[in-house]
Protein backbone atom coordinates (compact mmCIF):
# COMPACT_ATOMS: atom_id res chain seq x y z
CA UNK A 1 0.00 0.00 0.00
CA UNK A 2 2.66 2.46 1.08
CA UNK A 3 6.24 1.84 0.06
CA UNK A 4 8.87 4.25 1.26
CA UNK A 5 12.41 3.85 0.07
CA UNK A 6 15.45 5.73 1.16
CA UNK A 7 13.46 8.85 1.92
CA UNK A 8 15.59 11.88 2.72
CA UNK A 9 14.63 15.47 3.34
CA UNK A 10 16.93 18.40 3.92
CA UNK A 11 15.83 21.75 5.29
CA UNK A 12 18.69 23.86 4.05
CA UNK A 13 21.84 22.08 5.16
CA UNK A 14 20.05 20.34 8.02
CA UNK A 15 18.69 16.85 7.36
CA UNK A 16 15.25 16.28 8.87
CA UNK A 17 15.05 12.65 7.84
CA UNK A 18 17.81 10.45 6.52
CA UNK A 19 17.18 7.45 4.34
CA UNK A 20 13.93 6.11 5.75
CA UNK A 21 12.75 2.81 4.31
CA UNK A 22 9.57 1.12 5.38
CA UNK A 23 6.34 -0.43 4.12
CA UNK A 24 2.79 -0.19 5.30
CA UNK A 25 0.35 -2.87 4.21
CA UNK A 26 -3.32 -2.46 3.48
CA UNK A 27 -5.46 -2.31 6.60
CA UNK A 28 -2.51 -1.87 8.92
CA UNK A 29 -2.38 0.64 11.74
CA UNK A 30 1.16 1.91 12.05
CA UNK A 31 2.46 4.27 14.67
CA UNK A 32 5.30 6.73 14.26
CA UNK A 33 6.90 7.14 17.62
CA UNK A 34 9.59 9.64 18.32
CA UNK A 35 10.61 12.67 20.31
CA UNK A 36 9.92 16.16 18.99
CA UNK A 37 12.06 16.88 15.98
CA UNK A 38 12.55 13.24 15.09
CA UNK A 39 11.09 13.76 11.63
CA UNK A 40 7.59 12.40 12.15
CA UNK A 41 5.74 15.39 10.76
CA UNK A 42 8.19 15.80 7.90
CA UNK A 43 7.66 12.19 6.86
CA UNK A 44 3.91 12.60 7.04
CA UNK A 45 4.02 15.79 5.03
CA UNK A 46 5.93 14.00 2.32
CA UNK A 47 3.45 11.11 2.31
CA UNK A 48 0.63 13.63 1.91
CA UNK A 49 2.37 15.27 -1.06
CA UNK A 50 2.73 18.58 0.77
CA UNK A 51 6.51 18.55 0.84
CA UNK A 52 8.68 17.14 -1.90
CA UNK A 53 11.43 14.84 -0.70
CA UNK A 54 15.08 15.67 -1.32
CA UNK A 55 15.81 12.08 -2.27
CA UNK A 56 14.17 8.70 -2.22
CA UNK A 57 10.82 7.48 -3.46
CA UNK A 58 7.39 7.03 -1.95
CA UNK A 59 4.78 4.93 -3.70
CA UNK A 60 1.22 4.88 -2.41
CA UNK A 61 -1.20 2.43 -4.02
CA UNK A 62 1.33 2.22 -6.83
CA UNK A 63 1.33 5.98 -7.45
CA UNK A 64 4.44 8.07 -6.99
CA UNK A 65 4.01 10.97 -4.57
CA UNK A 66 5.91 13.29 -6.80
CA UNK A 67 4.67 12.30 -10.23
CA UNK A 68 1.05 11.41 -9.50
CA UNK A 69 0.33 13.37 -6.37
CA UNK A 70 -3.20 14.26 -7.42
CA UNK A 71 -4.25 10.61 -7.48
CA UNK A 72 -2.71 10.05 -4.08
CA UNK A 73 -4.29 13.10 -2.53
CA UNK A 74 -7.69 11.69 -3.44
CA UNK A 75 -6.93 8.58 -1.42
CA UNK A 76 -5.41 10.21 1.65
CA UNK A 77 -7.02 11.96 4.55
CA UNK A 78 -4.61 14.08 6.53
CA UNK A 79 -4.89 15.58 9.97
CA UNK A 80 -1.84 17.79 10.52
CA UNK A 81 -0.45 18.58 13.93
CA UNK A 82 -2.40 21.84 13.98
CA UNK A 83 -5.84 21.01 12.63
CA UNK A 84 -6.35 23.17 9.51
CA UNK A 85 -9.51 24.93 10.60
CA UNK A 86 -10.98 28.23 9.47
CA UNK A 87 -12.03 29.82 12.75
CA UNK A 88 -14.72 31.97 11.14
CA UNK A 89 -16.67 29.09 9.59
CA UNK A 90 -19.35 26.93 11.12
CA UNK A 91 -18.67 23.23 11.50
CA UNK A 92 -21.06 22.23 8.73
CA UNK A 93 -19.92 24.82 6.22
CA UNK A 94 -16.31 23.90 6.93
CA UNK A 95 -16.94 20.20 6.41
CA UNK A 96 -18.88 20.90 3.21
CA UNK A 97 -15.97 22.97 1.96
CA UNK A 98 -13.52 20.20 2.85
CA UNK A 99 -15.72 17.65 1.08
CA UNK A 100 -15.84 19.73 -2.08
CA UNK A 101 -12.14 20.41 -2.34
CA UNK A 102 -11.45 16.75 -1.60
CA UNK A 103 -13.46 15.91 -4.69
CA UNK A 104 -16.69 14.60 -3.21
CA UNK A 105 -19.37 15.02 -5.92
CA UNK A 106 -21.92 17.73 -5.19
CA UNK A 107 -24.84 15.39 -4.66
CA UNK A 108 -22.92 13.41 -2.04
CA UNK A 109 -21.56 16.33 -0.03
CA UNK A 110 -24.46 16.45 2.42
CA UNK A 111 -24.33 12.71 3.00
CA UNK A 112 -20.59 12.66 3.69
CA UNK A 113 -20.95 15.67 5.97
CA UNK A 114 -23.62 13.90 8.03
CA UNK A 115 -21.62 10.70 8.10
CA UNK A 116 -18.55 12.36 9.67
CA UNK A 117 -20.64 14.53 11.96
CA UNK A 118 -22.12 11.32 13.25
CA UNK A 119 -18.84 9.46 13.49
CA UNK A 120 -17.00 12.22 15.32
CA UNK A 121 -19.96 13.02 17.57
CA UNK A 122 -20.22 16.60 16.32
CA UNK A 123 -23.98 16.77 15.81
CA UNK A 124 -24.56 19.06 18.77
CA UNK A 125 -22.06 21.68 17.64
CA UNK A 126 -22.74 21.50 13.92
CA UNK A 127 -23.94 25.10 13.68
CA UNK A 128 -21.33 26.63 15.97
CA UNK A 129 -18.43 28.76 14.80
CA UNK A 130 -15.24 26.69 14.84
CA UNK A 131 -13.19 29.43 16.50
CA UNK A 132 -15.46 29.30 19.55
CA UNK A 133 -15.25 25.54 20.04
CA UNK A 134 -13.07 23.94 22.69
CA UNK A 135 -9.79 22.37 21.69
CA UNK A 136 -11.27 18.89 21.94
CA UNK A 137 -14.09 19.68 19.55
CA UNK A 138 -11.71 21.44 17.19
CA UNK A 139 -9.53 18.36 17.12
CA UNK A 140 -12.58 16.27 16.29
CA UNK A 141 -13.56 18.64 13.51
CA UNK A 142 -10.03 18.20 12.19
CA UNK A 143 -10.44 14.46 12.31
CA UNK A 144 -13.84 14.69 10.64
CA UNK A 145 -12.27 16.77 7.88
CA UNK A 146 -9.60 14.12 7.27
CA UNK A 147 -12.14 11.38 6.58
CA UNK A 148 -14.83 13.36 4.80
CA UNK A 149 -14.02 11.78 1.43
CA UNK A 150 -13.81 8.31 2.90
CA UNK A 151 -10.12 7.89 2.08
CA UNK A 152 -8.37 4.55 2.01
CA UNK A 153 -5.48 5.93 4.01
CA UNK A 154 -5.62 8.16 7.06
CA UNK A 155 -2.55 10.01 8.21
CA UNK A 156 -2.95 11.53 11.64
CA UNK A 157 -0.24 13.68 13.14
CA UNK A 158 -0.52 13.58 16.93
CA UNK A 159 -4.30 13.26 16.94
CA UNK A 160 -4.65 13.46 20.70
CA UNK A 161 -2.29 16.31 21.47
CA UNK A 162 -3.74 18.96 23.74
CA UNK A 163 -6.81 16.98 24.70
CA UNK A 164 -8.01 16.09 28.17
CA UNK A 165 -7.98 12.43 29.24
CA UNK A 166 -11.64 11.80 28.47
CA UNK A 167 -11.31 13.28 25.01
CA UNK A 168 -8.16 11.24 24.44
CA UNK A 169 -10.06 8.06 25.20
CA UNK A 170 -12.87 9.11 22.85
CA UNK A 171 -10.49 9.85 20.00
CA UNK A 172 -8.70 6.57 20.57
CA UNK A 173 -11.98 4.73 20.42
CA UNK A 174 -12.79 6.50 17.20
CA UNK A 175 -9.45 5.58 15.65
CA UNK A 176 -10.03 2.00 16.77
CA UNK A 177 -13.29 1.94 14.88
CA UNK A 178 -11.68 3.42 11.82
CA UNK A 179 -8.87 0.90 11.94
CA UNK A 180 -11.14 -1.89 10.74
CA UNK A 181 -11.71 -0.28 7.37
CA UNK A 182 -8.73 2.03 6.83
CA UNK A 183 -4.98 1.98 6.61
CA UNK A 184 -3.85 4.37 9.31
CA UNK A 185 -0.54 5.99 10.07
CA UNK A 186 -0.46 8.03 13.23
CA UNK A 187 2.29 9.70 15.10
CA UNK A 188 2.79 10.39 18.73
CA UNK A 189 5.40 10.97 21.32
CA UNK A 190 3.31 9.24 23.93
CA UNK A 191 3.95 5.51 24.24
CA UNK A 192 0.65 4.30 25.73
CA UNK A 193 -1.19 5.94 22.92
CA UNK A 194 0.68 3.94 20.34
CA UNK A 195 0.36 0.73 22.32
CA UNK A 196 -3.37 1.22 22.52
CA UNK A 197 -3.98 1.73 18.85
CA UNK A 198 -1.20 0.45 16.65
CA UNK A 199 -0.24 -3.00 15.57
CA UNK A 200 3.16 -1.98 14.36
CA UNK A 201 5.47 0.75 15.52
CA UNK A 202 8.15 2.66 13.67
CA UNK A 203 10.41 4.45 16.08
CA UNK A 204 12.13 7.48 14.67
CA UNK A 205 15.04 9.17 16.28
CA UNK A 206 17.00 12.05 14.85
CA UNK A 207 15.60 11.48 11.38
CA UNK A 208 16.43 7.80 11.27
CA UNK A 209 14.48 4.65 11.98
CA UNK A 210 15.63 3.35 15.35
CA UNK A 211 13.35 0.33 15.26
CA UNK A 212 10.49 -1.19 13.31
CA UNK A 213 8.61 -3.80 15.22
CA UNK A 214 5.22 -5.21 15.90
CA UNK A 215 3.76 -4.19 19.18
CA UNK A 216 4.21 -7.68 20.60
CA UNK A 217 7.81 -7.72 19.53
CA UNK A 218 8.45 -4.34 21.02
CA UNK A 219 6.85 -5.09 24.35
CA UNK A 220 8.54 -8.48 24.46
CA UNK A 221 11.93 -6.97 23.90
CA UNK A 222 11.20 -4.38 26.52
CA UNK A 223 9.82 -6.91 28.97
CA UNK A 224 12.85 -9.13 28.98
CA UNK A 225 13.69 -7.41 32.19
CA UNK A 226 12.11 -5.20 34.74
CA UNK A 227 13.72 -2.63 36.92
CA UNK A 228 13.67 -1.89 40.60
CA UNK A 229 14.65 1.30 42.29
CA UNK A 230 16.11 0.90 45.74
CA UNK A 231 16.83 3.87 47.96
CA UNK A 232 18.44 3.40 51.34
CA UNK A 233 19.07 5.56 54.37
CA UNK A 234 22.48 4.32 55.47
CA UNK A 235 25.13 4.31 52.84
CA UNK A 236 27.74 1.63 53.06
CA UNK A 237 30.23 0.16 50.68
CA UNK A 238 29.52 -2.80 48.54
CA UNK A 239 25.75 -2.63 48.37
CA UNK A 240 25.83 -2.86 44.62
CA UNK A 241 28.12 -5.89 44.71
CA UNK A 242 25.95 -7.63 47.24
CA UNK A 243 22.81 -6.99 45.23
CA UNK A 244 24.57 -8.36 42.19
CA UNK A 245 24.98 -11.72 43.91
CA UNK A 246 21.22 -12.24 44.12
CA UNK A 247 19.57 -14.70 41.73
CA UNK A 248 17.80 -13.22 38.73
CA UNK A 249 19.55 -9.87 39.07
CA UNK A 250 21.01 -8.92 35.72
CA UNK A 251 22.76 -5.70 36.56
CA UNK A 252 22.95 -3.05 39.24
CA UNK A 253 23.53 0.60 38.57
CA UNK A 254 24.52 2.76 41.51
CA UNK A 255 23.18 6.28 41.24
CA UNK A 256 25.00 7.92 44.09
CA UNK A 257 25.74 5.78 47.14
CA UNK A 258 22.13 5.59 48.33
CA UNK A 259 20.24 4.88 45.16
CA UNK A 260 20.43 1.77 43.05
CA UNK A 261 18.74 0.75 39.84
CA UNK A 262 18.42 -3.00 39.73
CA UNK A 263 17.66 -4.73 36.48
CA UNK A 264 16.23 -8.17 36.98
CA UNK A 265 14.47 -10.92 35.12
CA UNK A 266 10.78 -10.59 34.42
CA UNK A 267 8.41 -11.71 37.20
CA UNK A 268 11.23 -12.97 39.38
CA UNK A 269 9.99 -11.14 42.48
CA UNK A 270 13.43 -9.98 43.39
CA UNK A 271 11.84 -7.40 45.66
CA UNK A 272 11.54 -9.98 48.44
CA UNK A 273 15.18 -10.88 48.32
CA UNK A 274 16.29 -7.30 48.10
CA UNK A 275 14.19 -6.38 51.10
CA UNK A 276 15.51 -9.32 53.07
CA UNK A 277 19.07 -8.41 52.25
CA UNK A 278 18.47 -4.81 53.19
CA UNK A 279 17.07 -5.84 56.54
CA UNK A 280 19.95 -8.23 57.22
CA UNK A 281 22.53 -5.53 56.57
CA UNK A 282 20.34 -2.83 58.13
CA UNK A 283 20.68 -0.51 55.15
CA UNK A 284 17.34 1.05 56.06
CA UNK A 285 14.92 0.90 53.13
CA UNK A 286 13.50 4.27 52.18
CA UNK A 287 11.98 3.23 48.92
CA UNK A 288 11.72 0.09 46.86
CA UNK A 289 9.62 0.10 43.71
CA UNK A 290 9.39 -1.22 40.22
CA UNK A 291 10.15 1.31 37.55
CA UNK A 292 8.19 0.99 34.36
CA UNK A 293 9.91 1.59 31.06
CA UNK A 294 9.25 5.10 29.88
CA UNK A 295 9.52 6.33 26.36
CA UNK A 296 12.81 7.96 27.26
CA UNK A 297 14.15 4.61 28.39
CA UNK A 298 13.13 3.01 25.15
CA UNK A 299 14.86 5.69 23.16
CA UNK A 300 17.92 5.51 25.30
CA UNK A 301 17.93 1.77 25.02
CA UNK A 302 17.41 1.71 21.31
CA UNK A 303 19.88 4.43 20.53
CA UNK A 304 22.48 3.08 22.92
CA UNK A 305 22.10 -0.42 21.57
CA UNK A 306 22.56 0.87 18.08
CA UNK A 307 25.66 2.76 18.99
CA UNK A 308 26.94 -0.37 20.67
CA UNK A 309 26.56 -2.25 17.42
CA UNK A 310 28.38 0.46 15.51
CA UNK A 311 31.26 0.50 17.95
Amino acid sequence: MIEVENLTKFYGPHPAIKGLTFNVNQGEVVGFLGPNGAGKSTTMNILCCILPATAGTVKICGFDVFEQSLEIRKKIGYLPENPPLYPDMTVTSYLEFAAKIRGVPNNKVAASRDRVLDKCVLKDVRHRIIGRLSKGFQQRVGLAQSMIHDPEILILDEPTIGLDPIQIIEIRKLIHELASSHTIILSSHILPEITHICKRVIILNDGEIAAVDSLEGLTASLNKSERLLLRVRNSSNGIADKLQTLDNVLSVNAEGDKEFMIECAMNSHVQDQVAQMALEHSWGIEELKTVSMTLEDIFLKLTLEEKGVDA
Binding site: N45, I50, R73, I101
Partner: peptide, 14 residues
Protein backbone atom coordinates in the same frame (compact mmCIF):
# COMPACT_ATOMS: atom_id res chain seq x y z
CA UNK B 1 -0.47 31.67 9.29
CA UNK B 2 -3.60 29.72 10.26
CA UNK B 3 -2.07 26.45 8.98
CA UNK B 4 -5.13 25.94 6.81
CA UNK B 5 -2.85 26.01 3.81
CA UNK B 6 -2.01 22.34 4.51
CA UNK B 7 -5.68 21.50 3.95
CA UNK B 8 -5.51 23.00 0.48
CA UNK B 9 -2.16 21.40 -0.29
CA UNK B 10 -3.21 17.94 0.86
CA UNK B 11 -6.41 18.10 -1.18
CA UNK B 12 -6.53 17.01 -4.80
CA UNK B 13 -6.35 20.57 -6.10
CA UNK B 14 -4.06 22.09 -8.69
Amino acid sequence: KGKTYTLLLSSPLH
